[in-house]
Amino acid sequence: MTIETIKKIGVLGSGTMGGGIAQIVAQSGYEVLLYDINTEILQKAFGKISGFINRAVEKGKMTREEADAAIERIITTTHLANMAGCDFIIEAVPEKLELKQTLYEELDTITSPEIIMATNTSTLSVTQIASVTKNPGRVVGMHFFNPVPLMKLVEVIGGAISDETAVQITVEMAKRLGKTPVVTKDVPGFIVNRVARPFYLEALRLLEEGVADHTTIDRLIREGGGFNMGPFELMDLIGLDVNFAASVSVYEAYFHEPRYRPSLLQQRMVESGRLGRKTGRGWYEYGGGEK
């Protein structure tokens, strides 16, 4: 198995992440086999993807011919057995361990044993997903960021028993998809979701202590530190519930490491239903325009 022999890539799950991944894979010149549970979902996803690609033409980022060719390279399917013809698999189905494990068990019998299967999981252990396959060395993590076409970063995760060559080929694949790969061990939160925790947690502690109000903290982080957004603005954008869940999950996964202790204040905010921009109010209030 080498990177050059890869022509056709299977993408499992056509949601937020799978759709974005299918788009960049097709735009990078690969054939895409996009799989989901029913044709309705697939049709919707296909419509979205071709919409994004067509918009790129309007913005002058791509020629009409390139766009048409990219769209033509995407084939959808509801039959997992069709993955047999793929040379590389990227999985982006919902974040449930049993669901992913069942899928990998099936894929293990369908695909040829040397092709790489890469999971886009954010919080699960790549090693645990790989463990259900007969050849776990070929299972790696390939963690994209949302929105996939815009975010340059891909974390490539070598599980405890992943083959080094599988990791290296996945790194090369990420580059061919126009991304900047970084290699990380299979630890909870990988790099970004782990290292970023104190950005929120420390800001919440400062607020709890009354060192400054949230507006002042955001301002000091932006104007003093040069960050694009302050922690409270960013929590509102991400969704307080999603951000809180990430903190709890990292805290649990590291066996209650005190550095990751979640914030009670944030928990109360989540309980109150002020979840950020998506509910019109979080740390800040958002005008009628936003949902």
Binding site: F145, M151, L153, E155, V182, I191, V192, A196, M229
Partner: peptide, 8 residues
């Protein structure tokens, strides 16, 4: 690189 690209 991850922190610059992944979280700006």
């Amino acid at each position: 690189a991850a922190m610059k690209l992944g979280t700006n």
